[in-house]
Amino acid sequence: MRAIVAHRYGGPEVLELTTLPRPAPGPGEVLVRVVAAGTNPVDAHARSGAVPGWFGPGPHVWGWDVSGVVEAVGPGVTAFGPGEAVFGMPRFPGVAGGYAEYLSAPVGELAAVPDGVDHVGAAALPLAGLTALQTWERAGLAEGQRVLVHGAAGGVGHLAVRIAKARGARVVASARPKHHDFLHRLGADDVVSVPESGEPVDVVFDCVGDDRLLSVVRPGGVIAVVPGAARGAMALEATAGQVGVRVVRHVVHPDGRGLAQLAALVDAGRLAAEVSRALPLAEAAEAHRLLEAGHGRGKLVLVVDPEGVGR
Rank of each mutant, 00 (worst) to 15 (best):
124 A>Q: 02
203 V>Q: 05
127 L>V: 13
68 G>Q: 04
311 R>H: 14
214 L>M: 09
118 D>V: 06
256 G>Y: 08
286 E>R: 11
9 Y>Q: 00
128 A>Q: 05
239 T>V: 13
254 P>T: 14
238 A>N: 00
282 A>T: 10
244 G>S: 08
76 G>W: 11
11 G>A: 08
100 A>N: 13
157 G>S: 06
25 P>E: 04
100 A>C: 11
98 G>P: 07
159 L>S: 15
3 A>W: 03
302 L>I: 07
224 A>M: 11
231 R>V: 00
190 D>Y: 05
254 P>K: 08
205 F>Q: 09
296 G>F: 12
239 T>I: 11
226 V>I: 13
301 V>G: 09
74 G>Y: 04
143 E>M: 12
9 Y>N: 06
237 E>M: 00
262 L>N: 06
35 V>C: 01
225 V>H: 15
91 R>W: 15
46 A>K: 03
185 R>F: 02
67 S>N: 09
154 G>Q: 05
48 S>G: 09
135 T>P: 04
264 A>D: 07
4 I>E: 10
72 A>K: 14
217 V>M: 05
300 L>M: 15
263 A>N: 03
15 L>S: 10
233 A>D: 08
106 P>V: 13
112 A>E: 15
112 A>W: 11
141 L>Y: 09
277 R>T: 10
69 V>T: 14
58 G>K: 00
87 F>T: 07
55 F>N: 01
170 R>C: 02
87 F>S: 06
109 E>Y: 07
291 L>R: 02
29 E>V: 02
53 G>N: 04
29 E>M: 03
308 G>I: 04
144 G>D: 01
187 G>C: 08
135 T>L: 06
262 L>I: 14
1 M>T: 09
127 L>E: 01
224 A>L: 15
183 L>K: 07
8 R>T: 15
117 V>Y: 02
266 V>C: 09
197 S>N: 04
190 D>R: 15
214 L>V: 15
57 P>L: 04
228 G>C: 10
157 G>P: 08
119 H>I: 00
26 G>R: 08
56 G>R: 06
74 G>I: 02
78 T>G: 10
267 D>S: 13
201 V>M: 07
131 T>S: 15
149 V>S: 03
82 P>T: 11
121 G>Q: 13
157 G>N: 07
293 A>K: 05
77 V>Y: 12
237 E>R: 10
246 R>V: 06
79 A>K: 13
287 A>R: 02
80 F>L: 14
159 L>R: 12
60 H>S: 01
182 F>H: 12
9 Y>C: 05
303 V>R: 11
309 V>Q: 08
77 V>Q: 13
264 A>Q: 13
60 H>T: 07
71 E>A: 14
140 G>E: 00
233 A>S: 12
154 G>V: 04
265 L>N: 11
36 A>P: 04
298 G>N: 09
268 A>W: 00
143 E>Y: 12
30 V>G: 06
95 V>H: 00
102 Y>P: 05
258 G>E: 13
300 L>Y: 11
160 A>T: 10
109 E>G: 09
232 G>W: 08
28 G>R: 11
109 E>M: 04
110 L>N: 03
107 V>I: 05
93 P>K: 02
